[in-house]
């Protein structure tokens, strides 16, 4: 074996141990709820817990709402920037990256200050209003991933010429966007959507400070009061994330009509 190849294998092995060992240990621990035998009892308890089901469903619904709102905002914006405002791209990219720099707790305090019961738009006055606020917060949080995925997909097609071709055939801007642009950036859009899903499912800060029954606070609550169930929940959360990443690969590879 060549020296460089051996070095690569050692690096991979160290990386694998670093990332996989805690995961394997967590999984092993999650199976030890019953004394002396391995069992999925912790998983059974978690999956049959009504609070788990309610909080998971709540987060799934919110994730889907975030994806829809995010796509409706991001796709036309990224399209327009590529088509008509290419010089503004660095500015828009900077703005979309801000949620990575500004801590979530700062954003949520900003939200609470702006939309509390004393404000002009008192969204926190009702559950529905707070859910809306949480959704918009998640849209902000997922902006770096959604925008980047969509923008990369747009870069792969000749947006300007396809738009002109559609318009010369009588299509309006809306028809061009829905019939030509959207289908051609489907893979990128789905990547952004699954990343958003994975982020929203495990998010804690926003949901906790806005006092909403989401999956993130549930994870924290179980973690503070139980021993084996949090490990099972951690594995479940990993599986959800991996499933999202797997779906990105599946849909990315199976893009209709492309090589």
């Amino acid at each position: 074996m060549k020296r460089s190849t051996l070095g690569s294998w050692i690096s991979v092995a160290i990386g694998a141990v670093y990332f996989l060992l805690p995961l394997i240990a967590t999984f092993e621990f999650s199976l030890r709820l019953k004394r002396g035998v391995y069992s999925f009892e912790a998983y059974r308890i978690v999956l049959t817990d009504p609070s788990f089901q309610a909080s998971f469903l709540y987060s799934v619904v919110l994730a889907l709402a975030t994806i829809v709102v995010g796509a409706v905002i991001v796709v036309p914006t990224a399209y327009w920037v590529r088509l008509k405002l290419p010089k503004m791209r660095p500015v828009v990219e900077f703005v979309t990256l801000l949620p990575l720099v500004v801590p979530a707790i700062v954003i949520v305090f900003g939200h609470l200050r702006m939309y509390n019961s004393q404000s002009i738009l008192p969204l926190t006055d009702s559950s529905f209003g707070t859910d809306l606020l949480l959704t918009f917060g998640y849209v902000t949080l997922s902006l770096p991933y959604m925008y980047r995925s969509v923008d990369t997909a747009l870069a792969a097609i000749d947006v300007a010429t396809l738009t002109e071709a559609a318009e010369s055939l009588g299509a309006s801007r809306t028809a061009t966007l829905t019939r030509v642009i959207f289908p051609n950036i489907r893979a990128g859009l789905l990547s952004g959507a699954f990343l958003t899903f994975a982020i929203v499912i495990g998010e804690f800060t926003f949901a906790s400070l806005l006092n909403r029954p989401a999956f993130g606070p549930y994870l924290q609550l179980v973690g503070a009061n139980r021993a084996y169930e949090p490990a099972a929940l951690a594995i479940i959360a990993f599986v959800v994330t991996w499933a999202s990443l797997g779906l990105i690969q599946v849909f990315g590879a199976a893009r209709k009509g492309s090589k």
Partner: peptide
């Protein structure tokens, strides 16, 4: 009607 140098067929 317009025909472009790069064909501009809709890939999807």
């Amino acid at each position: 009607g317009m025909v472009f140098q790069s064909y501009a067929l809709f890939p999807n």
